[in-house]
């Protein structure tokens, strides 16, 4: 187990390193001189050169990469070009919105999808199953930003239960959660639709396994056999898909945060892109990549927890 952890951890570190190189290279190749963008087209050549020196752009790429990496490791992410504040501060504020949003979305999606999938599988080819499949079909087809707009129209404009967007801050946790609820539902629905399907087919597959028959031959009822023997074994594909969905969740957050005008990381990234704030883009993309990689690391650990055959490494 310790060996497995160590190996997975090394893989995690290497993946993160490769991701940082890829991000740096892509932004390096991208045309456009950050100094020129900041000062505008009318800037004088010597002002530009001074700014480049100040930003370290005159130094070789590998040196700038190492500086960036070293800074990132020590928590110093540099100064935002447009906001003139440390990126670390910007990101910390935004994370306090995006992280709970993502967590809430995963929670809602899992809480909907897993029970629905299990119910569908346990009632295979019966009305409950058809109902779940229909819901899933619709859920998969709906884009989350559009669904977000529908939610705003109905729950905010028509019913007036929620505000149409914005974020009050965590001083009032209830209000904060309330502001995150609709966007989280908008993010969760398409994911829940897919996850319910995966859960259904996985449970159906495990239900056909010999060891389920063994459990029934012990005298366990269908329901108890399902709970004790099927669920855990059926969760591996479900966890895999949840891990993969996390990257879609991050991408979805960029859209949904804009629909709901939430001051989150996705919105920050969107703004940084429109303002060509390369420092912020680089850092936020690295952070997203790190999040996705860490989540997949957690998925690997979940495998080992679920299936003892995978513990030996």
């Amino acid at each position: 187990m310790i060996f497995l952890l160590l190996r997975r951890f090394t893989a995690l570190a290497i993946t993160l390193l490769l991701a940082s190189i890829a991000i740096f290279l892509v932004l390096e190749i991208l045309p456009g001189d950050p100094a020129a963008i900041m000062l505008g087209t009318e800037a004088r050549e010597d002002t530009l050169a001074a700014l480049r020196r100040e930003m370290g752009l005159d130094r070789p790429a590998y040196e700038r990469y190492l500086n960036w990496l070293g800074g990132a490791l020590s928590g110093n992410l540099g100064l935002s070009m447009t906001y003139k504040v440390p990126v670390a501060e910007l990101v910390a504020d935004r994370l306090a919105v995006t992280f709970p949003l993502a967590f809430l979305a995963i929670l809602i999606s899992t809480a909907m999808a897993v029970p629905l999938g299990v119910i569908a599988a346990a009632n295979h080819e019966r009305p409950a199953d058809h109902g779940v499949m229909l819901f899933s079909q619709i859920g998969v087809a709906i884009p989350n930003f559009w669904f977000g707009l529908l939610l705003i129209l109905f729950f905010s404009s028509y019913l007036g239960w929620f505000s149409a967007g914005g974020f009050p801050g965590w001083d009032d946790p209830v209000a904060a959660l309330k502001a995150l609820l609709l966007p989280a539902v908008a993010l969760a629905l398409p994911q829940a639709a897919i996850l319910a399907r995966v859960t259904r087919s996985s449970v159906l597959e495990v239900l056909g396994e010999d060891f389920v028959r063994t459990a029934r031959a012990k005298g366990l009822t269908r329901r108890v056999a399902l709970r004790r023997h099927v669920l855990r074994n059926a969760l591996i594909p479900v966890v895999t898909v949840m891990g993969m969905q996390f990257s879609f969740l991050v991408a979805g957050a960029i859209l949904v945060e804009n629909v709901f005008t939430l001051p989150g990381l996705g919105r920050l990234l969107f703004q940084a892109m429109s303002q060509r704030d390369l420092v912020v883009i680089k850092d936020v993309v690295l952070l997203f990549a790190a999040l996705v990689i860490v989540v997949n690391f957690l998925v690997d650990l979940a495998y080992a927890w679920l299936d003892p055959r995978l513990r030996q490494g």
């Binding site: 010999d210 028959r213 063994t214 031959a217 074994n233």
Partner: peptide, 17 residues
């Protein structure tokens, strides 16, 4: 309880988890 059953495939008849 009153009837026990042994199955053919010992590799798959036991719960791996």
């Amino acid at each position: 309880k009153r009837i026990g059953m042994i199955f053919q495939e010992p590799m798959t008849a036991l719960n791996p988890a």
